[in-house]
């Protein structure tokens, strides 16, 4: 049961993030609307992770404004994020999910039911009682996804969701993402894996040097990018 208000469209207007003299994001504007997963791609250091933190509401921009569904502020708990290196609480797999569902006035039966659903969705039932920190990298990533999805976010941000995972684990993680997208969660994912972006995403935002250079349907972007930088990036050249 989602409250009637929505975080979408999520609008970033002329966002600049400066650390000292360095501009990590440079007057970047991007509108995130409901629909197929959005891939944020671009060279290392382009500002992709910073962009996610701004959109999530974890970081305030130096200049510019963010609005969630037309509102200048929105409870962060409405959205979900899976960090590049998710922190596993020093508890069981099941307790990690149950903790994420706490503190929001859910009845304990509802909380337990949602925990079980999340475990099933990520195929983690056999590991439910295992300490989360003893899981393999792929299992931890699945738990992080399950933990974020259990909260039934409207938008889910993913930072390199299959980084350093083997093919089988990557497949499992992508299945969960596809599932979530299918059930209406807006996925916004940073990835350096172009194959993954092609497999999962319907739209692409290409960022370099803290600027948004392209934003549009994935098929068109991969077939015929509009900018030289994107074309060079897709060819595998080094783009600064």
């Amino acid at each position: 049961m989602r409250p009637p208000v929505s975080d979408l469209p999520l609008v970033l207007s002329r966002i600049t993030v400066r650390v000292g003299a360095l501009a990590i994001l440079d007057s970047l504007s991007l509108t995130i609307t409901p629909g197929a997963p959005l891939a944020i791609i671009g060279p290392n250091g382009a500002g992709k992770s910073t962009l996610l933190r701004i959109a999530m509401g974890l970081l305030a921009p130096t200049e510019g404004a963010v609005s969630w569904g037309g509102r200048p502020a929105s409870d962060i708990a409405r959205r979900g994020i899976v960090f590049q290196r998710p922190a596993m609480l020093r508890r069981s797999v099941e307790a990690n999910i149950a903790f994420a569902l706490g503190g929001r006035g859910l009845a304990s039966a509802e909380r337990a039911a949602r925990t079980q659903r999340a475990l099933a969705q990520a195929k983690l039932e056999p590991l439910a009682q295992r300490p989360a920190r003893r899981l393999s990298g792929g299992e931890q990533q699945r738990l992080a996804l399950a933990r974020a999805l259990a909260r039934e976010p409207e938008v889910l941000f993913l930072d390199e969701p299959a980084n350093n995972l083997d093919p089988a684990a990557t497949k499992a993680v992508e299945a969960i993402i596809r599932d979530a997208a299918g059930s209406g969660v807006k996925i916004v994912m940073v990835t350096h894996d172009l194959g993954q972006a092609r497999r999962l995403c319907g739209e692409v935002a290409f960022i370099a040097g803290g600027r948004l250079l392209e934003h549009g349907p994935a098929a068109a972007f991969f077939a015929d990018p509009n900018t030289q930088q994107a074309a060079a990036f897709l060819r595998g050249d080094i783009v600064e």
Binding site: L58, I76, A77, R79, I81, F83, P86, L89, R90, F99
Partner: peptide
């Protein structure tokens, strides 16, 4: 834990309790 708990919208009381427990 900071980023994770902040992203979950965990308030100060639950934050301290979670840290002490873990």
């Amino acid at each position: 834990y900071r980023d994770e708990l902040t992203a979950m919208g965990v308030g100060p009381g639950r934050r301290v309790a979670a840290l002490l427990w873990d």
